[in-house]
């Protein structure tokens, strides 16, 4: 029987949730016996070619590409998990929701003290995905099955959730594992 597949991605996140996943340390040797990593930044699998049992999503949606990737994950994963505060509620990147997007771009590309920009251009190229006006948590875009809070959720939290899911048990995490930072 082939092993269940797990996919992960980082949308508008900082990769800290992925780092916390790696913080399971030696248990990663056990994990790769239990599952097969499919599309994730850890492998060179760039497109879904198979159905995945679990998808872990870090970060919320800040641009159209994040939305597209998130929808792809929903289509290909049986269980989708919002991993961390950014995915769950937007997190620090969502602080920009209180400021007009234009102001953010102006500060970064026109007003900053080290900026050299005689032409006054703000990045705008067909290769750059359209920014959303607001950063959205994942569940505002697709259905999310589980939420793991924390910035990042601890390695023990991620491990406990994965183990339960993979063995078909109910995901019931003790109080100590549920923390917002």
């Amino acid at each position: 029987m082939s092993k269940p597949k797990v996919a992960t991605c980082s949308l508008a996140g900082c990769f800290g949730c992925h780092m916390s996943l790696l913080d399971i340390d030696e248990r990663i040797l056990e994990l790769v016996d239990l599952i097969e990593f499919h599309k994730t930044p850890l492998t060179d699998i760039k497109r879904f070619t198979a159905r995945c049992a679990v998808g872990l999503v870090e970060g919320g949606c800040a641009n159209e590409e994040n939305v597209e990737v998130l929808r792809t994950f929903r289509r290909h994963c049986d269980v989708l998990i919002s991993l961390g505060d950014c995915a769950t509620m937007g997190g620090i990147p969502a602080l920009r929701n209180f400021v007009p997007l234009e102001d953010c771009l102006r500060e970064a590309y026109l007003a900053g003290p080290s900026v050299y920009n005689p032409g006054g251009d703000v990045p705008n190229d067909i290769e750059l995905p359209l920014l959303l006006d607001k950063v959205r948590p994942c569940h505002e875009v697709v259905k999310i099955d589980y939420f793991l809070p924390g910035c990042p959720p601890s390695a023990d939290t991620i491990w406990a959730a994965l183990k339960a899911l993979l063995s078909g048990e109910p995901v019931e995490l003790p109080y100590q594992l549920i923390k917002y930072d």
């Binding site: 641009n63 400021v99 771009l105 500060e107 290769e127």
Partner: peptide, 24 residues
């Protein structure tokens, strides 16, 4: 291909938050 806008939205926050906020 991504943009966050940290330099702008961090303005208006108290300075002692910087070491814990900006690391995000």
């Amino acid at each position: 291909v991504e943009f966050r806008g940290f330099e702008r939205f961090i303005c208006g926050r108290p300075y002692w938050e910087m070491p814990v906020a900006v690391q995000r």
